[in-house]
Design a protein around this nucleic acid. Structure first.
Lengths: 338, 338
DNA sequence: TATAAAAATGTAATCCTTTACATTCAGGCG
DNA sequence: CGCCTGAATGTAAAGGATTACATTTTTATA
C-alpha cells in the first residue's frame, strides 16, 4: 500500500542503492539520476521508513527525556529548550514521566536497551535504586545526561544551575537590607536542589556570623500548598523572622498568599525571596524578588551535551556544566522592620 | 555486540520463532521452552529491538503530540494527561513544537508518513495552510485527534472544553454581582478559543439585554504582558467598566498586577475573572475567580480517542468530546461598586 | 588511441523480528 | 496397530532501508 524505495527505484529506472544515495547524499549521484529520483519521490509521495532506516543504521535519531512531573511548568520549560536543540539536529524527543515507571512496571529505561532512543536526558535526581543501577551499566551510562537535578552519588555528566550561588545571592541581598533573622523554606529534603540552595544560604549567613538552626528550616515540597501552609507557622513564631528564602517560586507565592491571610505585609513585615523566576513571579502581588535560572538554557545545554556524547565528538563541557544565576530584585523584599 | 533473538534461540536450544512466541504470547509454547527462553533472556539481558519489531509489525507503538509552545504550563498539563493514558497502553509519546516546523523546514507531520508514529494529537488550532493540507490527506486524517484547540474549517475528531459555557458562566456570575459594564480581554483574534469564549460572553450578555462593543474587546494574546498592558487602558476609560472577563488566567493575573499599579482595587473597583484555573490562580493576590477546565482530562480523553482510532475499535465518543467547565468563585470578583 | 584513474551504478548481504506455512510429535480412539 | 487431531516447533519469507563490494561508465593523461 505504501510506496517503498523499490518502487521509486523501478519508476525512476535506477537501483535502490542509487535512490538511497540520491536522497541521503545527493552529491554522490549524477544529476540525471538525481532528478529522476526526486521526481518519482515527489509525485509518488515517498517517505523513508524510519524503522527500516534505524534498524539498518543502528541509530534511532531520537532521545528520551525523563521528567518527574510533566505538568510542572518548571520542567516543561526545560523541555522546550531540549526540544529546540534536538529539532535543529533533526533528532526526535520522546517524553516519559519518571513517576510512571513505578506504575507501569516496565522501566523507563527499557527504551534505551530496545535502541528505541540513542540517549537519555534525565531531569529527575531522585530515581529509585533499581533505576540507578540500570543507569550505571556502562553501555547505558555513556548515553545519559542529567539536567537541572542530578544524582550526587553517581557521576553522570550534568547540566545545572549554580544553586549554591543562588542561595548566597538571596541571603546577601537580604543582609544588605538589614535582615538578621531568617527562615528557609525547603523542598523535599532528599532533593539535591534543596540541599544545594540551603548550603548556599548557610554559607552566606556564616560569612555574616549568622546561622540557621533546624527549627528555621521548614517545608517538604516545592509546592504552592507547602508555602501557603507555612504562613501560619511563621506568623506564630516569636520573635518573628523577617526574611524568608524559598527553595522555589511556587513556595514563595503560596507563602505570600498565606501571609496575606495572616494579616502580615510583604515586604513590610516579612521579606520573601523565591527561586527560579517563573514567568508569573514578576506579576505576583507584590512582585517576587527571586533567583533567576535559565531553564531554556539548561535544556539546550543538556541536549547539546547529549548529542555530542552520542556522536562521540568531544563534548563542549567535559562532564559538568554549571549555568550562572542572577538575583531579580522586585517588590517582595524591603528593609528589615525596625 | 548486542544480543539478538538468534543468540537467545541458540542458547536456549529452540528456534527464533519459539523465542518470539515465548516472549509475546507465552501461552503458546510449552512450559519447558518458555522457561529455557526466559532464563536465557534474563541472564543475557536480551531486549527486543524496537525498530525491527515496528518494521515487521507495521506499527510504531508511538504517537506524536504537536504543541504550540511547550514551555507554556497550560499545554504541558494537557500533555501530562496524554502521557498518562499512553503509558497505560504501552505507547510512547513524541513531542514536537509546532512553531518549530516553521524553522526547521521539515514538516512535523513527516513523522506520520515515515510511520515513525501511529497517530497525532494536535494541540494547535492555528496551523499554517500547508500543514492543514497535509493533515487532510485521507491516510493522515484518520490518525489525527485535536485536543483543546481545533480547526473550525476542518472536521477532525476533537476533545475540547465547553469554552462557550465558560464565557457564559463568567458573565452570569458577574451579572449576579450587579455588574453591567464589561470588558473582554481576548487572546489572539484568530484563535478558536478566543472566539468561543467571547461568543459565550456575548450570549450571556444578550440574555440580560446587554452587549459588548468592539471597543470593549482588548488584547491580542493569552499572555501576562497583554493583561498587564491593558490595565492602563482600562484605568483611563470613562466611565470605567467594573467587570473584566479574561480569556486566560495569565491575562487576568497580568491585568491584576497592572491594576494594582494603577492604584485600582480588585475587586472593589474592578472585578476580574480568568479562564483555565491554573494552579497559581488560587494563590494569586487576590485569589482569582476563574473558569476551571480539566486539562488533564482533555489530554487523557484525546489520547484514548486516538488509541481507539488507531486500533480501529469503536471510539468512545464519535468525533467530538466536550468536557464541562466550572466556575471557581474566589476573591477577585465582588459586588459592583455603587 | 590506449590506459589509468575517478565517478556512477548495481548486486546482494545485512539490520532483527514476526509470522504464514510446513512439519513433527504425543495422545486418543476405533 | 493405524489414523486422526491438536499442540508445539521449525523454516524461511517478509518488512524497507543502507552499504560493502563488484562492476560499468566516464574523464583525464600520456
Amino acid at each position: 500500500m505504501s510506496v517503498s524505495i523499490k518502487d521509486i527505484a523501478r519508476i525512476s529506472g535506477v537501483s535502490t542503492a542509487t535512490v538511497s544515495r540520491a536522497l541521503s547524499d545527493p552529491e554522490r549521484v549524477s544529476e540525471k539520476a538525481r532528478k529522476a529520483v526526486m521526481e518519482a519521490v515527489k509525485t509518488h509521495g515517498y517517505r523513508v521508513n524510519s524503522h527500516a532506516r534505524s534498524l539498518r543504521r543502528q541509530r534511532a535519531d531520537a532521545v528520551l527525556a525523563v521528567v518527574p512531573h510533566l505538568g510542572n511548568p518548571f520542567f516543561s520549560t526545560i523541555l522546550s529548550g531540549v526540544e529546540f536543540e534536538l529539532q535543529q539536529a533533526g533528532v526526535d524527543l520522546l517524553v516519559a514521566d519518571s513517576r510512571a515507571s513505578d506504575r507501569g512496571g516496565r522501566s523507563v529505561f527499557a527504551h534505551l536497551h530496545a535502541s528505541r532512543v540513542d540517549g537519555l536526558i534525565c531531569l529527575d535526581g531522585n530515581l529509585p535504586d533499581s533505576a540507578q543501577q540500570e543507569l550505571s551499566q556502562p553501555d547505558v551510562a555513556e548515553r545519559v545526561v542529567f539536567a537541572c537535578e542530578w544524582m550526587p552519588d553517581a557521576d553522570f555528566p550534568s547540566v545545572r544551575s549554580d544553586n549554591r550561588a543562588g542561595g548566597r545571592l538571596a541571603v546577601e541581598h537580604l543582609l544588605e537590607l538589614g535582615h538578621r533573622d531568617f527562615v528557609f523554606m525547603a523542598g523535599p529534603r532528599e532533593n539535591i536542589l534543596t540541599a544545594e540552595r540551603l548550603a548556599g544560604v548557610q554559607e552566606a549567613l556564616a560569612k555574616a556570623g549568622l546561622s540557621l538552626s533546624d527549627d528555621r528550616i521548614k517545608g517538604q515540597d516545592f509546592t504552592l500548598e507547602e508555602g501557603f501552609a507555612a504562613a501560619e507557622w511563621l506568623a506564630a513564631l516569636s520573635p518573628r523572622p523577617t526574611a524568608v528564602v524559598c527553595a522555589s517560586d511556587q513556595i514563595a507565592i503560596g507563602l505570600m498568599a498565606g501571609l496575606a491571610q495572616q494579616g502580615l505585609s510583604v515586604p513590610d513585615d516579612v521579606s520573601v525571596v523565591g527561586f527560579d523566576d517563573i514567568a508569573i513571579a514578576a506579576y505576583a502581588n507584590p512582585s517576587l524578588t527571586t533567583i533567576r535560572q535559565d531553564r531554556i538554557g539548561l535544556g539546550r545545554a543538556a541536549a547539546r551535551m547529549l548529542l555530542a556524547r552520542i556522536d562521540g565528538t568531544a563534548p563542549e563541557h567535559k562532564g559538568l556544566c554549571t549555568l550562572p544565576v542572577t538575583l531579580m530584585k522586585r517588590a517582595s523584599t524591603g528593609a528589615a522592620p525596625a
